[in-house]
Every structure is written in C-alpha cells, then in structure tokens.
Design a protein around this nucleic acid. Structure first.
Length: 155
DNA sequence: GCCAACGTTGGC
DNA sequence: GCCAACGTTGGC
C-alpha cells in the first residue's frame, strides 16, 4: 500500500549545493541535516513525494526548481565520518541519530519564485506555512497539496 | 557582515 | 528541570 503523495520544501545554500548542481548529478543524498524536526520530516517521506527546491542564504532567496524523493530514509553516512563537517561523535552505527533521503532532479523553474513574492501571498497560502513563519529556520518542511499548486502557479 | 531568532549544551 | 551561554541559520 502506498500513501498518497506528499509535498515538501527543502532548503539549500546555492554556494554549497544549488539546483544546477542537482541537475548535474541527477540524484543527491540530502546529507548534513542536523535538526530533529527536519530529520523527522525526512523519516516520514516516501518515494515519489514532491520537493520544492529552495535557495537560502543568498542574493535572491526563493524556490528555484522541483525534485522528487527517490529513496526512503536511511542513515546519513557523514555522521560517522570524523573528517566530515557533519560528524556527530554521539551517533553510533547501532543507533544512528541522523537520517536522509535521496533527492532526484525534476526541473528548474523558468524563474525564481522569490521569498519576497511568497510573503506577499501569505494569506492565500494560509496560516502555518512554515517557510514564512516568524523566525523559522527549518531546512525541511511540509507543504500542502494546495500550497504546492499555488506556489508553482506563480511561475 | 550584522544580528534576530532559535536550538542545543551543560552547570547547577 | 531551569536557564545562561553558545552556536547556527538565514534574511537583510
């Protein structure tokens, strides 16, 4: 039995990993997430779920493309690697603390749907769109089917 | 580069 | 279990 397709927004700093990088490699393990809430969202993802690819911490923050979840959650290898920036000495192979999913490139948007523009549509998006909630820093967050449709219609 | 917001850590 | 200190995120 397959659950109904769900939707997510995932942030990445384009200097570190951009939508162009994803297009080049095709599929990428979404490593380095070290926030429990974000991790829990990834653990609940299913193959085929839709992803809005968001560029953060850059000149023009916003949604730049779409991707799909292409694996179930599995342990993030970087947590075990002492040489990695994402190394977590408190995590063990027996009981891994951090998980990730693979994300597959779908398409680039013809233009960036900017954060500024998204904020202007806060009413239409409804309360609780985590991206534009005050002070929110979550790097992985859920998007409803209605929000997905609305946001992509702005393109 | 600044800084507000927020999560985590660790002393007590 | 409180909370101050600290580190990180991310818009500006």
């Amino acid at each position: 039995m397959t659950a109904r397709k769900r939707y997510w927004l995932m942030k990445s700093e384009p200097d570190a990993f951009s939508i162009d990088d994803l297009e080049k490699v095709g599929t990428e393990p979404w490593n380095g997430v070290r926030n429990y809430q974000a991790r829990n969202f990834m653990r609940s993802m299913q193959v085929g779920d839709g992803v809005l690819f968001y560029h953060s911490n850059c000149k023009e923050p916003g949604i730049v493309g779409t991707a799909t979840v292409s694996s179930a959650a599995y342990p993030d290898e970087t947590q075990f690697d002492p040489k990695s920036d994402y190394h977590d000495p408190k995590s063990t192979r027996e009981d891994p603390r951090w998980s990730l999913v693979d994300v597959a490139f779908e398409r680039k948007l013809t233009r960036t749907i900017t954060l500024d523009e998204i904020k202007q549509h806060a009413d239409a998006l409804g309360d609780g769109f985590a991206l534009i909630q005050r002070g929110n820093r979550l790097s992985v967050l859920p998007v409803t089917a209605a929000q997905w449709k609305f946001l992509l219609a702005l393109e």
